[in-house]
Amino acid sequence: MTANDSFDRLADDDYPAYTIGRAAELLGTTQGFLRAVGEARLITPLRSEGGHRRYSRYQLRIAARARELVDQGTPIEAACRIVILEDQLEEARRINAEYRRTASQSATGD
Score class of each variant (00 low, 15 high):
E91R: 14
A107V: 06
R53F: 15
E25A: 15
G21P: 03
T102W: 01
E39I: 06
E49M: 02
G50V: 03
E49D: 10
Q59W: 04
T2G: 15
I82D: 10
I43S: 10
V70P: 03
F33A: 04
G50E: 09
E49W: 01
A17G: 10
P45T: 08
Y99S: 04
T19L: 08
T29L: 00
L60S: 04
S56E: 08
L34N: 04
L26F: 04
A23R: 06
D110W: 12
R22M: 04
R61M: 11
Q88I: 03
G73T: 13
Q31K: 11
A36P: 03
R67K: 06
P45Y: 12
L60R: 03
I82K: 11
L46K: 14
R65K: 13
T29R: 03
I95A: 15
A23L: 04
A63L: 08
D71C: 07
L46T: 12
A3N: 00
R81A: 15
I95M: 12
T108S: 15
V37G: 02
Y55T: 02
N4V: 15
A36D: 11
T29Y: 03
H52W: 03
R35L: 11
D71K: 10
I76M: 12
G73C: 09
R65C: 07
Q105G: 00
L69P: 05
T74A: 10
R22W: 02
A36W: 04
A63D: 03
L42T: 13
R94P: 00
D87F: 01
G32A: 08
N4T: 14
G51F: 11
I84T: 14
E49L: 06
A64I: 01
R22Y: 11
F7K: 12
R41T: 10
T2A: 06
S48D: 09
I84K: 15
Q88T: 04
Y99T: 09
C80T: 13
D87S: 13
G50A: 14
A17H: 11
T29M: 01
D13I: 08
D13Q: 13
L89C: 06
I62G: 01
E90A: 12
L46C: 07
G50T: 12
E39V: 09
N4K: 13
R94C: 00
G21N: 09
Q105F: 04
R53Q: 11
A92Q: 14
A3C: 00
A103L: 05
S6T: 13
Y15V: 07
D14M: 11
E90D: 07
Q105S: 09
Q105V: 01
A64E: 05
Y99R: 13
T2Y: 08
E77P: 04
L34Q: 01
R100N: 04
E49T: 07
L85W: 04
P45A: 08
Q31D: 06
L85N: 10
R67N: 03
Q72Y: 10
R101Q: 12
E68Q: 15
I62Y: 02
